Simulated assay, not measured.
Amino acid sequence: MADIILHQYATSPFSEKVRLLLGAKGLAWHAVEIPAILPKPDLLALTGGYRRTPVLQVGADIYCDTALICEVLDALAPAPALYPPAQAAAARVAAAWFDAALFTASVTYVFQPAGVASMLGHLSPAQVQAFSADRKAMRGDTNALRMPLPEATALLHETFGQLETQFAAGIGHVAGPALSVADFSLYHNLWFIRRAGALAQLLEAYPRLQAWYARMNTFGHGRPRVIDSEDAIGAARSADPLALDEGVVVDAGLQAGDAVTVTPTDYARDPVAGVLLALSARRVTLRRQDPRAGALNVHFPRQGYQVQRAA
């Protein structure tokens, strides 16, 4: 198997979700530290335009979105299982909600004035301005990652209160008795809030939730080794993309070999263009060619992404 390469940055909540998962799986992996804001020329050479963090690379195959990254890592290292059969559906639904609705509430809560100094205090005024402009551009004209503060705070308290009750009843994990992908999706929200200085006091009302967090935290980050982005591009260039055998499911008149674009439907709506290789209810894969990285397969989850014939 080619090396596992995670394109990430230290303060990214979704990167922390995957780092913890790599620790739970006991995996060795390579870390490429990418910029938190555009430009990201080395990352975009691999993804073709997808700019969200993190991105997983295995040889010449590029996996976008942590919903898909979790599936890929679970296939590479099946223990501990992320989708235990008795609670797989509940785990997937809960993980999707934590990654979307709860994360939106977490961002709103953390980036109120009392939390900004803790989150961005290490940046210069010019860097803060650039970060703010970048995130505004990511949101575009959508309401993604926006929520009124009172509603965000109420959502956090309601969610954490429900989990506190569940843990008190002896259910040790988020989606049932077994560890699952939902635990990792909840974890990065708490990790993010805990970094917000005095605002992290919100969690003090939920001791069982904090005990669950402490147990999850013991997984660590596996065995990372930092490499340069040029090394990652070289790894892609020297590898062959995986030959896919699941075929293409007809969807809206699309067929294998069609020129298409894949675009997130919520925020950071940067389309990725390529030749359609595979399309199912769960995944879409494009083949693209990059002058630096060579032939690449770029994979996305089907949910949350729009697939269209290229103009």
Rank of each mutant, 00 (worst) to 15 (best):
I5W: 02
Y9E: 08
T11N: 08
L20R: 11
L21G: 15
L22R: 01
W29L: 13
W29A: 02
W29M: 09
L38W: 02
L43Q: 11
L44T: 14
V55L: 09
V58T: 05
G59R: 10
Y63M: 03
Y63R: 00
P78V: 11
A79C: 06
A79W: 11
A79Q: 01
P85Y: 14
A88D: 11
A88F: 04
A89P: 01
R92I: 04
V93L: 13
V93K: 02
A100I: 07
A101C: 11
T108I: 00
Y109H: 04
G121D: 07
H122S: 12
L123M: 01
P125A: 10
V128P: 01
R135G: 02
L145N: 11
L156R: 09
F160S: 07
P177M: 14
S180N: 02
S185F: 13
N189E: 11
L190N: 05
F192M: 06
R195F: 08
A198K: 01
L199N: 00
Q201R: 06
Q210V: 12
A211V: 07
M216N: 06
G222Q: 14
D228G: 03
S238W: 10
S238Y: 07
L244G: 08
V249W: 10
V249T: 13
G253I: 07
G253W: 08
A256I: 12
T265I: 14
D266E: 15
D270L: 06
A273I: 01
L277S: 15
A278L: 13
R282S: 13
R287D: 14
G294Y: 10
L296V: 02
H299F: 08
H299Y: 14
R302V: 12
Y305T: 07
Y305S: 08
